[in-house]
Amino acid sequence: MNAATPSRISLAPLHAVLAQLDDFILGKPRETRLALACLLARGHLLIEDVPGVGKTTLAHALAAMLGLAFQRVQFTSDMLPADLIGVSIYDRDSHAFRFHAGPVFSQVVLADEINRATPKTQSALLEAMEERQVTLDGETRELPDPFFVIATQNPSSQIGTFPLPESQLDRFLMRITLGYPDVAAERAMLLGEDRREMLRDAKPVISLAELADSQHAVRRVHVAPALVDYVQALCRATREAPDFHNGLSPRAALGLLAAARAWALLAGRDMVIPEDVQAVFAAVATHRLLARASNRPQPELVAKLQAAVAIP
C-alpha cells in the first residue's frame, strides 16, 4: 500500500514473529501486534484479564519467538524482593559473599499475577524496570539487554489483590487485554495442538542482532511537527478532561510517540501518521487515566476522548 519502507532493515523477521504469534494466540492479531510494538519501543507490557484467556501463553510465545532468555515469576502475597532480585550468600571456599542472581536477571521476565504481591515486592520489580539495573549491598548490577517485563494481572476486583499504584502503572508502556476469543478462533484452538507442546517446539525466528536493529530502526522513524501537534493535542485533552483524575504525564507522551513509531515500523512506514497514534493510544493511555467516577481505567471514556480530539 505504501511504498516507503524504513531503509536498511528487513521487516521479514518481524512479520514472521507476528505470523507465529498469531498461530499461538488465535484471533487476536491486533493484540499480538501491540505486544510486539511495545517490545520494539523498549517498553514493558501489562496484560490484564481474567484467568485463562492466554496471557501467559502470549508472554511465553513472545519470548520463544524472539529467542530470549525467559524467566517466569509467580507473584504471591508472601513473596519478598530477594526472591525476585537475588541474594548474597557467604561462600566458604572463597571466604566472600557471592551474589546469586534472582529471576529478574533475565531478558524476558514474566511477572505473573503481579497484583498478588505486596507493594514492597511490586516496587522492587518496578524499580528494576525503570532503571534497568539493580542495586544490592551497595553494588549496582546491570540487567541484561534487551530487558522486557511482561506482567499479567487479574482485574483488581478479584479477591486477594494489591492494585498497582498510578505511579507504577505509568512504567508500563502498554496495557492490553486479550478478552475471550471469538467462536471460530476458540473452535480452532480446541481442535488444534496443545499449546504447551507447541511452545516447547517453538524455534526463534529472529536473531538478537535483528531485534536490536529493529529497536534501533524504531527510533529513526520520522516524526513531523504536525504529528507532534496531534500527540500534544491528545495529551492536553486528557489533562483538561473532567472525566479523569490526572492527565497523561510527559513520560506517557514520550511513550505514546515511541509506541506509534514502533507501530509505523511494523506497518512498513518510515514516518508516523495520525492513524499510528490512534492505533496505540488506547493501549498506552487507558491504564494511566483513572476515571473520576469509578477510580478505575475506563476504556470507553478514553475512546470517547480520542474521537473528540480533532487531528490538527
Binding site: I273, E275, A307, A310
Partner: peptide, 9 residues
C-alpha cells in the same frame, strides 16, 4: 471526514 478521522482512514 469525522472529527478524529485520520487522513488514511
Amino acid at each position: 471526514p469525522a472529527r478524529a478521522e485520520g487522513p488514511r482512514d
